[in-house]
């Protein structure tokens, strides 16, 4: 089966899953114990305001009709109005999305680059003290809560050493002309190097703390995949004909060992979208994760539903892309 047909089939199979996701996200409002209107508006709201919100959210209609309305609008990218700000939910999410993507992508790149380097060197020095140390470190890496690590990094580098800013994306009052929404790119487009460095400094700690879990996973997978490949016949052949070991590793083995690594990078990238919720909260990073937490504490449920759906949808898309790349990279895998 060709790549295109495989992709179409995957997308087709996705339809029931996405419908299921919309049902679950829709039901979130109905999981609220008691009267959702009272929860959202508080008990001091006037009867007229309660009526208006009930009608706006369509809560006076039967359940299936409510779902259908929500679903049809959601398909068009319309998640209703924020209860708090009265602005369209979609607009608010889109304006926050670049900050989250910038953070998640940077963390992914950091994790991938260092993870592969460290993983390969661990495999290279298999069973040495160095190897055992790295394996242990990677286990510690998945066991540290990233919010705690973030706070500790902030304490060390911002409070004690004063090297890096405490929070936010850019220094107060800095005028970034938003073109792409990615500050690293926008500041460069602006030609303002000091502003670029400023945004890089802001990005450093959040990206580092977000990168720890994927970094540890990538180290572990790279190491074990590398060990697998190094026991293959063609590696032995290469050694037998006298190629230097270092060259075998980088020219022959790494290319084949990377296939599972790329899968893990992709899977971790999807998870980073959710991990960013914690990091953004620690560093007051103005992304979708922080918006989600704020909306939850404001009981702004249309906003919560919108963000949860968008993040889940992004997660699904990333996973499909990973599958396709995986299938493309490894010719042994048939597009089934």
């Amino acid at each position: 089966m060709g790549l295109l047909r495989y992709l179409l089939k995957r997308l087709f199979l996705l339809i029931p899953t996405v419908i299921g996701v919309t049902i679950l996200v829709f039901l979130l409002v109905h999981f609220i114990p008691g009267d959702p209107i009272e929860v959202m508006l508080g008990d001091k709201a006037t009867e007229a305001a309660r009526q208006a919100l009930t009608e706006r959210l369509g809560l006076d209609k039967p359940m299936y009709e409510q779902y259908w309305n929500w679903f049809v609008h959601a398909l068009q990218g319309d998640f209703g109005m924020s209860v708090q700000s009265r602005l369209p939910v979609t607009e608010a999410i889109l304006s926050r999305l670049p900050a989250t993507i910038e953070l998640a992508l940077t963390a992914t790149i950091v994790a991938a680059v260092f993870g592969i380097i460290v993983g390969v060197s661990a495999a290279y020095h298999h069973n040495s003290k160095f190897d055992h140390l790295l394996v242990t470190f990677s286990l510690v890496g998945v066991s540290i809560p990233i919010f705690w690590l973030g706070i500790m990094l902030m304490f060390l580098f911002s409070a004690i050493l004063g090297w890096l800013p405490v929070s936010g994306r850019i220094s107060m009052g800095a005028g970034v002309q938003e073109a792409t929404g990615f500050y690293l790119i926008d500041t460069l487009l602006q030609g303002d190097i000091s502003l670029f460095l400023d945004s890089l400094k802001h990005l450093l700690l959040p990206a580092l703390s977000l990168a720890t879990i994927p970094l540890s996973q990538i180290v572990r997978v790279t190491r074990s995949s590398m060990l697998d490949v190094l026991s293959e016949d063609y590696v032995r052949t290469a050694r037998a004909k006298g190629l230097p070991y270092r060259k075998i590793i980088y020219k022959h083995a790494l290319k084949n060992a990377l296939i599972p690594v790329i899968t893990v990078i992709g899977l971790q990238m999807g998870k980073l979208l959710a991990g960013a919720i914690l990091t953004e909260t620690v560093f007051s990073w103005p992304g979708t994760g922080r918006l989600l937490i704020q909306s939850i504490s404001n009981r702004d449920y249309p906003m919560v539903q919108g963000i949860v759906f968008i993040l889940a949808f992004a997660f699904i898309l990333v996973n499909i892309i990973v599958d396709v790349i995986y299938a493309k990279l490894d010719p042994r895998i048939r597009f089934e």
């Binding site: 299921g20 996701v21 679950l24 998870k271 959710a274 919720i277 914690l278 949860v308 889940a312 997660f315």
Partner: peptide, 12 residues
């Protein structure tokens, strides 16, 4: 049904 639940990042 399980696929639907697995479509969400766990923390989310």
């Amino acid at each position: 049904v399980i696929d639907v639940f697995l479509s969400f990042p766990p923390l989310l």
